[in-house]
Write a protein that binds this DNA or RNA. Sequence first.
DNA 1: AATAGACTTCAACGGTCGTTCAATAACTGG
DNA 2: CCAGTTATTGAACGACCGTTGAAGTCTATT
Lengths: 218, 218
Amino acid sequence: MARAKRSTKEKLLDAAEKRFARRGFHGTSLREITGEAGVDLALVNYHFGGKKPLFAAVLERRGAVLNEERLRRLTEVRRAAAPRPASTEAVIGAFFDPILDFLAHAGPGWHSYFSLLAWVNNSPEWGRRLMSKTFNATVREFIGALMESLPGAAPEDVFWGYNFLTGALTLSLAETGRLDILSSGLCRSTDVAAIRARLGPFVAAGLRGLAQAGTPRG
Amino acid sequence: MARAKRSTKEKLLDAAEKRFARRGFHGTSLREITGEAGVDLALVNYHFGGKKPLFAAVLERRGAVLNEERLRRLTEVRRAAAPRPASTEAVIGAFFDPILDFLAHAGPGWHSYFSLLAWVNNSPEWGRRLMSKTFNATVREFIGALMESLPGAAPEDVFWGYNFLTGALTLSLAETGRLDILSSGLCRSTDVAAIRARLGPFVAAGLRGLAQAGTPRG
DNA sequence: AATAGACTTCAACGGTCGTTCAATAACTGG
DNA sequence: CCAGTTATTGAACGACCGTTGAAGTCTATT
């Protein structure tokens, strides 16, 4: 075994990530989490200080990794295009591809994490504070890059475009299985390659369409 | 008072709709709901048979109204375009406009309902069964109409396009307030007119882009 | 080996949950 | 007005919740 033993904290984070992703914050009990982690109930409070801090820690752990990778790719596509601004497609790729790469090649933890992220992003209860705290700085960078890639587009249109973009991404990550039923099995919610092939073109075309439709208005 | 007194069932549905929309199924207690409704706790079980049946009834009540209005408009745009298929924009309008009209001109109940719908749609726990039961028949009609409006598009692309479309809609309905923060107040999550002006153009362009990008693949 | 500190265990606390049931009240058709 | 149904009340049930504190174990340093 080359792998070091997982610490108690990591066991708890992994188990919490998995359970929170499936049933949300209120639908998951600490006894479920500690049971799955094989760890005593009281250790949640010892290591994290409570249920809510544990939830926040789950979101933060991979969120930091995701932010770093996204910014790395954004810098890359910007440098490749300099001195012109990066294209809309390239910016979108830097935003989506880290997620899709982690989903395709990393462990099942990322699967749960993105499912949880989809849940949080649509939650009025958590979406505002928690998402903003972890992701706002990075997202603002990307929105800025999108504005540069769409000269003449109204800022409001780009903000709303980002909202639609992340909504489309979010529902794809939630893996509710509904698309499977709707398409009678033709499409599968878990098909990362299918998302990769389609989500980018969809939102790039959407953003351009929105920018063009919006310009004459202003 | 021209309005008839609300029945106990309606009071419970209204209160449950409001509370479930804000904190989800597990985050809302029956005592909260009955307290807000001003009725006795035991009446939930008397009238609905339990918490889960109440939740399903909340989803079903306005879902039936929404389905009816959507299908009415779909029939209308199809007849107006006959014998040619309805345009992608017209089909999308028949799908979105009932929601936006209810939001803009009907009572606050619809507001809570759509927020709840956004929550359910992204939930792995409820999204599959409950959404499918109430909405699949109608949604299949719309997907069929979208396919007719995009001749040559691969069915898989249209199914995925619908997934992105409904994801973008869903996040807009969730009203998490995150867009307000991201845009420093420039955009407001609750601005129905802003959604109406942008969501249609965005997804129409996205669907066309997806269909065009997909065709050479097949 | 002794000691200090970090970690883990166990049992229990008060509180809230969804649900149930017998009783009472309100309504309705005769 | 009465009988029979429907609706409402109030209290209570057992189960599970998040959190706590005291006691025990492990680890590293002296």
